Amino acid sequence: MSEKFFNKPFRLNAVFSGTGLQAADLGRSISNHIELIIFTRYGEHRFQNSFGCEIWDLDFELIVSESIWEEQFRKSLLKSITDYEFRIYNTSVDIHITEVENIYPLRQITEIKKKVDISVRALIKTTGEKYFFSTALFLSPLST
Results as ranks from 00 to 15, higher is better:
I37C: 06
L142I: 13
V15Y: 03
R107S: 04
P141S: 08
F51S: 08
S50Y: 09
L137P: 02
F73V: 03
E99K: 15
F86N: 11
E85T: 04
I30F: 10
E71R: 14
S50Q: 13
T40E: 06
F10D: 01
R41H: 13
I124F: 08
S92L: 09
E54D: 15
T19N: 07
R41M: 06
I55L: 15
K114M: 03
G18K: 09
H45C: 12
R74H: 01
E35F: 05
A136C: 02
I38D: 07
R107L: 01
S76A: 08
I37A: 06
T91M: 02
R87M: 06
N7D: 14
L142R: 14
G18S: 09
D94W: 01
E111W: 01
R41V: 02
N90P: 00
V93I: 11
I30E: 09
S80F: 04
K4W: 04
Y104H: 09
N13T: 12
T126K: 14
F10H: 02
I97R: 10
T144V: 05
L139N: 07
E35N: 15
K114I: 07
E54A: 11
L137G: 02
N102H: 11
G43P: 10
S134F: 07
T98Q: 12
F138I: 10
F51T: 05
G27W: 00
F16C: 00
L26R: 12
I124A: 05
A136K: 07
V100Y: 06
Y42T: 04
L12R: 02
I38F: 08
G18T: 09
H33D: 15
F60H: 11
E61C: 09
F86V: 07
K130D: 15
I103N: 04
Y131R: 09
E99Q: 15
I38N: 05
L36R: 03
I88K: 10
A136D: 05
K79A: 11
R11Q: 11
I55S: 06
A24V: 05
G18E: 10
S119E: 14
F6H: 07
P105Q: 09
K130E: 14
K125G: 01
L78P: 01
T98Y: 05
W56A: 11
F132C: 03
K79H: 02
W69D: 03
S143I: 11
I37Y: 05
V100T: 10
I34Y: 06
E101Y: 04
T127W: 09
T40H: 06
V15H: 04
I88E: 06
A24P: 06
Y131D: 08
Y131Q: 05
T98N: 11
H96N: 13
L58Q: 12
D83P: 00
S80Y: 06
D117R: 10
S67T: 15
R46Y: 06
